[in-house]
Nucleic acid binder design. Sequence first.
DNA 1: ATTACTAGTAAGCGAGTAT
DNA 2: TATACTCGCTTACTAGTAA
Lengths: 228, 228
Amino acid sequence: MKPYLIQVLKELALLGAINNRVEISSGELAAQIKTSQQTASRYLLELDEMGLIGRELGVKKQMIRITEEGANVLRDEYTQYQRIFELPEKIYLSGVVTSGMGEGRYYIEQKGYKIQFKEKLGFIPYPGTLNIEIKPVDRNKIRLLKKTDVIRINSFKSGDRTFGEVRCFPATINDVECVLVLPARGHYSTVLEFISPVSLREKLNLKDGDNINITVSLPREGERCYEE
Amino acid sequence: MKPYLIQVLKELALLGAINNRVEISSGELAAQIKTSQQTASRYLLELDEMGLIGRELGVKKQMIRITEEGANVLRDEYTQYQRIFELPEKIYLSGVVTSGMGEGRYYIEQKGYKIQFKEKLGFIPYPGTLNIEIKPVDRNKIRLLKKTDVIRINSFKSGDRTFGEVRCFPATINDVECVLVLPARGHYSTVLEFISPVSLREKLNLKDGDNINITVSLPREGERCYEE
DNA sequence: ATTACTAGTAAGCGAGTAT
DNA sequence: TATACTCGCTTACTAGTAA
């Protein structure tokens, strides 16, 4: 979808072309979007061919109406802006199922973690984590999570070693509820670990390489903290 | 403002670049917006030169943050989408002060209208209308108004002639409250007439040719009616 | 008046590559 | 690895104009 066509569609929508036909000549549209009449005419032809607008050409002007499909294009844009400005409650990620090397399992089996999971999450996790590899660029979204404070699992000592603090976020994978577990310290990884009372791999019938969609819930506004 | 730059800015914002710095290479951005690394690099240069983003170039990746100015560009876009989808309570117009030929005055001085103005608007208008010429393309917005029902002034007979039904809409001109009066029948005009208890021309200190901004309030959702 | 075609020009794109 | 330059190619633009 060409960006300039979205802009034109938006302009038509602002004139009311979503719920009504709108009377506008290519010259008028051109003035509105500050381009030439010829270009405006071409835009309308393109939008028409793509089925995003409908036109009734009269002898003089034309009546234009945005189609359902065209309205959907704009609605999608609107949704994106809402995600930007409406201090989102969720972030959206997609990723691929991978196999870790069983370290996730080793960690969550530690008594010091298990007690806290039971207390703060209300369940003892199935012994094993579901590892999801996300796109490197989406680590920026994880960055946001690291600054928030949802459910905090404290660090503890066991024998000679220390197990670090981790943070938990209510999440869904393909609409199944689970919990994202992030180490509070350390470098950003492209692999996320999820836990649940039951085996997510079985419940979701997943195998390595499967694509899945993730949503992660963010805490309420007041608890949010940003840089600087 | 080039449409494709807005799209890129939006993409960065979706990664969280408004409140945080975001770590992204030109190649990653390219993949995100489905273009080449070179083009993505050029986009970032353009946005940087325009002051819409700030960059910290490291040896490897770069940290990007949307500036206040950049955020404003996106906020303006968002506002436009809100006007499209949030079933607006107001429509926004701009226009130029013109002189009619005194017909407005003739009409509102009619007793049949005056009684109804007093009853339904709560005031007897200053004897004269403020005429505002709008852009022809904005008649589409007026079209929306014609389908709504805010304050209806009934037609009446006086002597041998009939005075038609008119509709009134709460409005503001340069933030001063007034009332837009539209004939219920007849062709769309590019000249709108406004009334008020006092002389709007004096109160706003207007002369012919002055540019003014208008907002017109629409009725609540339930009362709205669309074509078809 | 319009819409929209043609043709010449300008802007945008991406492969190759320097840094 | 990165970023971002050059340059040939493609796409988009507008003036002129036909319908």
